[in-house]
Design a binder for these strands. Structure first.
Length: 299
DNA sequence: TTATTCGGAAATTAAAAACA
DNA sequence: GTTTTTAATTTCCGAATAAT
């Protein structure tokens, strides 16, 4: 009945949800004096992962949240802690993007434990996956503690649910908030049963954040937790990597680096070091530069 | 009145599962 | 291998709302 859909609508028509004629500049843009661009990168269509994945995830989160709502007697005493579900809009897309950028621009060489493409793919579904959500909140908590990291402020958009003040200590507040969010949401699902690489990274970031905040006992706890999870995932056995090497070399490489990261951190950032305040980022950079084989640190 | 916004139906696409 | 089923993404219709 109607005209056939154009294969690609321009950015403005897409936003406005109006029919685009697909030429440049399109009629709508010309009419409203907008510059007609086609910059948006189309998402991959079609199912991702196993078919039942989403439905099972939804079931699981529903089960967990109803369960935790019952179990939770109110840890902080405030209404906000009635559930272990993620706090809506705590972690904005802008903040997340800024943190991911900062991580890969400044921290990645010292911690090559994330793979950018995978991370960005995963990030799109963080609302559906608690494991991913925790990884991202802990990553942001860690990144926003770093010297030189400025959080995206209210200048651009006005949606700033936890408005990070651009002054001293502002990032510490944000970091603490995100760290607590990670820990809280983590209680809502069983990340120990079959530890994923992401939950390992989450523990590692929790370690790093606590360390940065001078909470050394808890830092140590999370580092040990990460190590324990790594052993549970048999990351100390070379044989365990063989299956990944053939199927998913990116994942295998990540596992190897992560294991080394843990190994080096645990060995060279012992309790004695906790007594002194030092920038974990700088320290690890130095340590890893010396102790990590190039083949592993490379990329 | 016309212009704009946006919920959501329909179409499109691609991966997973089923089949031969 | 090919076909079917299913899920994710896209376009854009048309009702609701805002502007004039």
């Amino acid at each position: 009945m109607t005209t056939t859909a154009v294969k690609r609508a321009c950015d403005a028509c897409h936003r406005r949800k109006v029919k685009c004629d697909g030429i440049s500049p399109c009629r709508n843009c010309s009419a409203s004096q907008l510059s007609c661009t086609y910059n948006a990168v189309p998402q991959k269509k079609g199912p991702k992962g196993s078919r039942a994945k989403v439905i099972n995830e939804l079931k699981e989160t529903q089960r967990q949240t109803s369960l935790s709502a019952k179990l939770q007697g109110g840890i902080n005493g405030v209404a906000a802690s009635a559930t272990l579900a993620p706090t809506p809009r705590l972690l904005t897309k802008e903040t997340l993007k800024a943190c991911i950028d900062f991580f890969f621009n400044h921290m990645y060489p010292a911690m090559p434990i994330l793979e950018r493409h995978r991370l960005e793919q995963d990030a799109m579904y963080m609302d559906q996956n608690l494991d991913t959500y925790c990884l991202l909140t802990s990553l942001c908590a860690f990144v926003c503690l770093q010297p030189g990291m400025t959080m995206p402020g209210p200048a651009g958009m006005q949606n700033d649910p936890f408005s990070p003040e651009m002054m001293f200590g502002g990032n510490i507040v944000t970091s603490t908030l995100l760290m607590e969010e990670t820990i809280r949401v983590r209680k809502g699902y069983d990340y120990v049963a079959s530890p994923s690489v992401n939950s390992l990274c989450t523990s590692y970031f929790l370690f790093a954040v606590h360390h940065g905040l001078e909470m050394h006992d808890k830092a140590w706890f999370h580092l040990r937790e990460a190590t324990t999870l790594a052993h549970m995932a048999r990351m100390n056995e070379e044989q365990a990597y063989l299956q990944y090497d053939s199927n998913d070399s990116v994942d295998a490489a990540r596992r190897r680096r992560l294991y080394w990261q843990l190994f080096v951190t645990e060995r060279f950032v012992p309790e004695s070091c906790f007594a002194r305040s030092c920038s974990i980022g700088r320290k690890l950079t130095n340590l890893l530069a010396v102790h990590m084989p190039c083949s592993i640190a490379a990329r």
